[in-house]
Design a protein around this nucleic acid. Structure first.
Length: 503
RNA sequence: GCUCCGGUAGUGUAGACCGGCCAAUCAUGUGGGACUCUCACUCCCACGACUCGGGUUCGAAUCCCGACCGGAGCACCA
């Protein structure tokens, strides 16, 4: 026996073996020719909750060199937002999720029709024209409705009429399950229904499959090997199982993850939509929302989200995702690329006398000198110079205080009023400020600055920024020193509009 | 109410299947300190958890039972 093999065998019996640390996602059960799917319903753009399903599916597809199908589940015409199809694809692209195939259920209605008919022909399904309340009552008592007793030709005839005669709510196709099942919703659950609501992509159609039916048909015909979805779908395994069995198909492996809540955030698409309509939110990308487009606008990197979702994994228990963790991952990604600038929030004037003429410079990034300098402006000798301080710094200063204007000089506060203060020049040396443990504050010049607006989830912050801010480009992420990271979203005629990322 | 599922530090996570190496991992956070012309970065130190009660066992975070807490489902939505 070769030495290598021997070592391997010995290792198997060592208890140390099982303590090897798992990295990344848990292994899949039967990972051969893996086919997965991400199946959102197109009622709006994707949010953080969707990101979990999308990313985890993507990671598994990559891990096993499998295939990921994007399946758009648009079989409830009343909940379809025509814009959503495009938005979902954009959001996935931003996330870096690669789908190898796109399936839109409203384009596959004929397949569902055909299979519903097949189930009727086989005697496994029937068309039920009972009033829904009446059926509900019978079902509670585990009793069959009159339609269940109809023969196959009769059912086929009624099925045809669903496409022409019956109105919405008048007929459904039901699967014959078992009236004795303890969960009433399992008993002869519906497969197809009529909706007269116009479908933006399936004009003229009025018969639609219900979720459990279309999902089963598609999972089967698309060769799904593994299904990763929220635990709210657990009961559906049982329902779908009936369909698999009637057709003689084998169901895929299922993995169900728990509910994901995000601190102080409502992820619900329908509630968001309502908020947009009433004007409470500015749009799908409102900074307060958990949509991916809102998060992107705030300069959060897709990789930060991916890492957070990998962290979270596929556990069954519910979790509460913390923004702090997400921000920490994001900071790690953007820190070294984010150049530094001064921005004063809620500017308050401070006039300084006796300063020498000088030019102010600072590094674009304190850890990378080769990135070069930025110019903070210049002043002339003996001029009374006006500076702005942020309102929080202004509030803290006291008369007689020794203060360091960062990258400039040291001053002493001579007088302080409600909205402005006067100071006199003392010295230029930073060391002196350090020795006196003086406060170091950032500033902008009174006459050479850029108007700035920062949009944050908490509201809008106005102020002034240093002149070199004119050089940055839309989409660039920078750090306003002692304020936080921001992303430039828009340059308007008179101001720069930033979105706040995090501290 | 009925039927399922879950509970490890503030948050997320590893360990659980196969009990001992776990006075419990890693990340984030928080507190303190060093560095720094930022409240960012970096470095150091500290803090902080097996929901509870029984049982099995020489030994339980891990197995069993119960309680409590949390969640999901109980649609002609997905």
């Amino acid at each position: 026996m070769p030495k290598e093999q021997l070592e391997k065998d010995v290792k198997q019996f060592e208890y140390v073996e099982k303590k090897e640390k798992r990295i990344g996602l848990p292994e899949l059960e039967n990972p051969e020719n893996v086919v997965l799917r991400f199946a959102p319903n197109p009622s709006g753009p994707l949010h953080l909750g969707h990101a979990r399903a999308a990313i985890l599916n993507d990671e598994y597809a990559k891990k096993y060199k499998g295939k990921l199908i994007l399946r758009i589940e648009d079989t409830d015409p009343s909940r379809v937002d025509p814009e959503a199809y495009k938005m979902i694809e954009e959001d996935l692209e931003w996330l870096g999720v690669v789908s190898h195939e796109i399936i839109i259920q409203s384009e596959r209605l004929e397949i569902y029709y055909e299979h519903a008919e097949k189930l009727i022909e086989l005697g496994y399904a029937y068309v039920c024209t009972c009033e829904s309340g009446a059926f509900y009552k019978l079902r509670i008592d585990k009793e069959a409705c009159p339609c269940r007793r109809n023969d196959i030709p009769k059912n086929l005839e009624k099925y045809k009429k669903m496409f022409s005669d019956y109105k919405e709510g008048e007929a459904v196709v039901r699967l014959k399950t078992d009236l004795e099942i303890n969960d009433p919703s399992m008993r002869d659950f519906p497969l197809m229904r009529i909706s007269e609501h116009p479908h933006p992509r399936a004009a003229g159609k009025r018969v639609y499959p219900l979720m459990n039916f279309s999902v089963t048909i598609d999972d089967h015909f698309n060769g799904l090997t593994h299904v990763l979805r929220g635990k709210d779908h657990i009961p559906n395994i049982r329902k779908q199982r009936f369909i698999y069995d009637y057709f003689g198909w084998t169901p895929p492996e299922y993995i169900h993850y728990g509910r994901l809540k995000v601190e102080e955030l409502a992820l619900s698409t329908s509630a968001t939509k309502e908020g947009i309509e009433t004007g409470e939110y500015t749009g799908w990308d409102d900074a307060r929302l958990g949509t991916l487009r809102a998060i992107a606008k705030r300069g959060i990197q897709p990789k930060a989200i991916r890492r957070a979702m990998m962290d979270v994994g596929t556990k069954r228990s519910d979790i509460n995702l913390s923004w702090k963790n997400l921000y920490a991952y994001n900071r790690e990604l953007i820190e070294r690329d984010a150049n530094r600038y001064f921005f004063v929030d809620g500017p308050k004037e401070i006039s300084v006398t006796g300063a020498p003429g000088m030019e102010f410079h600072a590094l674009l990034h304190p850890d990378f000198k080769d990135k070069g300098n930025r110019s903070l402006g210049k002043i002339k000798e003996k001029e009374t110079v006006k500076f702005y301080l942020s309102s929080s710094d202004f509030e803290n200063i006291k008369k007689g205080e020794f203060l360091r204007l960062m990258e400039a000089f040291n001053v002493e506060i001579v007088d302080k009023k409600e909205t402005c203060a006067e100071a006199k020049f003392i010295s230029r040396e930073l060391e002196e400020a350090r020795a006196k443990k003086a406060r170091l504050v950032h500033w902008t010049l009174g006459d050479n600055n850029v108007k700035i607006k920062v949009v944050s989830p908490e509201g809008i912050i106005n102020g002034y920024g240093e002149p070199d801010l004119k050089n940055i480009k839309v989409d660039e992420i920078i750090q306003f020193e002692r304020f936080g990271f921001v992303r430039l979203d828009e340059i308007t005629d008179d101001e720069l509009v930033f979105y706040f990322s995090h501290k």
